[in-house]
């Protein structure tokens, strides 16, 4: 598997370039992500009435927004291939692993750009201060990476089903629960400014979750893709 990783990465980059090109021209997935995130953010902001919420609540609210926004947009990349009929051409031309890698990189790019937009807005609109900014950015980075990693293979499963929109959220929730617990706990700690020793286990959990999600997806994707 390792000897084939380099060609897979090259071919995965071709998938990424293609998806980015199409996304820049159609805004098919990004508009869904941003619209959902901004609407939710404004609703949350109004509901707390301009008061800075407790860090426990603020951390949970941030990851609720990111999780549901991800569910609204991340399945689009596979759904679009199925709906437009391009999936046959892609299946014949590409091996499954580069397809997974390309779609994963694309979802990472989408979620990072969403986080860059939403997280500062969230902090400003809810009057929040971050006590440990570097660790906070690391938590958001690893959390977004994990959301993209697990959601990508689930999106491939969901793309073949009838109730595409709702199914991804239902399937993803139990799989993403460990990630969300770690991300919420880490975000809470970095907001309130406890010692780095308390943040390190959360960072470790997110790091290993990412590794497991990507390796397991690479091993299983062939069965999902060819079924």
């Amino acid at each position: 598997m390792l000897t084939r990783l380099f060609p897979w990465l090259n071919q995965g980059m071709a998938v990424l370039r293609k998806d980015l090109r199409i996304e820049f021209r159609t805004r098919y997935a990004y508009s869904a992500l941003v619209m959902f995130a901004v609407t939710t953010l404004v609703t949350v902001s109004f509901s707390v009435g301009g008061f800075a919420p407790d860090t426990d609540i603020a951390a949970a609210l941030l990851w609720i927004i990111l999780f549901f926004s991800a569910m609204a947009g991340l399945s689009r990349t596979f759904v679009h291939e199925e709906e437009t009929g391009t999936v046959i051409a892609l299946k014949l031309a590409a091996e499954p692993e580069p397809v997974y890698l390309g779609k994963y990189f694309f979802n990472v790019a989408l979620l990072f750009s969403l986080s860059i937009l939403v997280v500062p807005m969230f902090l400003v609109m809810l009057n929040l201060d971050i006590a440990m900014p570097v660790a906070f950015v690391a938590i958001v980075f690893l959390g977004s990476l994990g959301l993209a990693g697990a959601s990508t293979i689930l999106a491939a499963i969901v793309a073949k089903a009838g109730a595409k929109g709702s199914l991804l959220t239902v399937l993803a929730f139990p799989i993403l629960l460990p990630l969300l617990i770690g991300a919420i706990s880490g975000t809470r700690s970095t907001m309130s400014g406890v010692s780095m020793e308390l943040v390190t286990p959360d960072l470790g959990l997110l790091f290993f979750y990412n590794g497991i999600a990507v390796v397991a997806s690479l091993l299983l994707f062939e069965y999902v893709w060819n079924d």
Binding site: Q11, R17, K18, R25, G85, I88, A89, L90, A94, P98
Partner: peptide
């Protein structure tokens, strides 16, 4: 394969489609 079910990427130009399929075939 040439088939009525097979579709190429309408949002890409013909050259971009060929560039992509060359890329994924290595």
């Amino acid at each position: 394969l040439v088939s009525p079910d097979l579709e190429l990427y309408g949002e890409l130009t013909a050259v971009e489609n060929l560039e992509f399929f060359s890329g994924v075939r290595g």
